[in-house]
């Protein structure tokens, strides 16, 4: 078995010790990120299947229960997430061009969008709480739908949008840290665009989930 000497490594800079060069590291990170996103799809996937089965079994009640939700407010949020996704794409583009000033600008936009999303979500949830539509002992539903099915509907609504909301919250934290690294001009982000790209991939995924959640919860047609 032949052998060559391992290339020398400096442990500063963006290259980690287990990789030979930045290119290998970048490709590995992106692949790892996609593997992570695939598991995220399956994670949400089980919820989407539960949703589909339940809606298939109770189409009319599902429609009636969904009228309690505010599609306009959620529509604002949908647009808000689209904008943030666009900001992220632009931030990654400027990171590739090594323009830290512009990157920080776009990233502030993303943070703002995610804050707006969470604030709107807060108002939505607190309205549901006031209307006794949170499943549990205080659940009290008087609408057209069967109360049990309505409880399942709101259970899934809170489970799915809640899990999505947690992802938004995590995304907010990630982007605050990322922006901090860019403001401090840390070489880990300025010399290699991949950390920014990975955060971006995560954020696009959060947007993707919402693209499906929005029509499935807020825009149900009357059967």
């Amino acid at each position: 078995m032949a052998a060559i000497t391992a290339p020398a490594h400096d442990h500063h800079g963006p290259l980690h010790h287990q990789f030979d060069d930045l290119e290998q590291q970048n490709e590995t990170y992106i692949l790892g990120m996609w593997a992570f996103l695939v598991q995220e799809i399956m994670f949400f996937g089980a919820l989407f299947v539960s949703y589909a089965i339940m809606r298939y079994k109770h189409p009319m009640d599902w429609w009636a229960a969904h009228t309690e939700l505010d599609w306009k407010l959620a529509g604002v949020n949908t647009f808000n997430l689209l904008v943030s996704s666009f900001f992220v794409a632009m931030a990654v583009r400027n990171a590739q061009l090594k323009q830290p000033g512009k990157v920080v600008g776009w990233l502030f936009g993303v943070i703002l969008c995610s804050l707006i999303f969470l604030v709107i979500k807060y108002f939505e949830y607190s309205l549901k709480w006031q209307h006794h539509l949170v499943p549990g002992p205080s659940f009290y539903y008087t609408g057209e739908a069967n109360a049990g099915v309505a409880q399942t509907f709101f259970g899934l609504y809170f489970a799915m949008t809640g899990l999505h909301g947690i992802h938004v919250l995590v995304g907010l934290i990630i982007f605050v840290v990322l922006t901090g690294l860019w403001i401090a001009r840390k070489p880990i982000v300025t010399e290699d665009y991949i950390p920014t790209e990975m955060c971006g991939l995560y954020w696009h995924f959060v947007d993707l989930v919402w693209i499906f959640l929005y029509p499935l919860f807020y825009l149900i047609p009357k059967p």
Binding site: M42, F86, G200
Partner: peptide
């Protein structure tokens, strides 16, 4: 659109495309 353009799968390697398609196991 988001996957192909914003997430860059359009320009990604075959492997990345394969994993992006892996989500369809759902």
């Amino acid at each position: 659109l988001v996957v192909a353009i914003f997430m860059g799968v359009r320009k990604g390697s075959g492997l990345i495309k394969l994993y992006a398609l892996g989500g369809f196991v759902w």
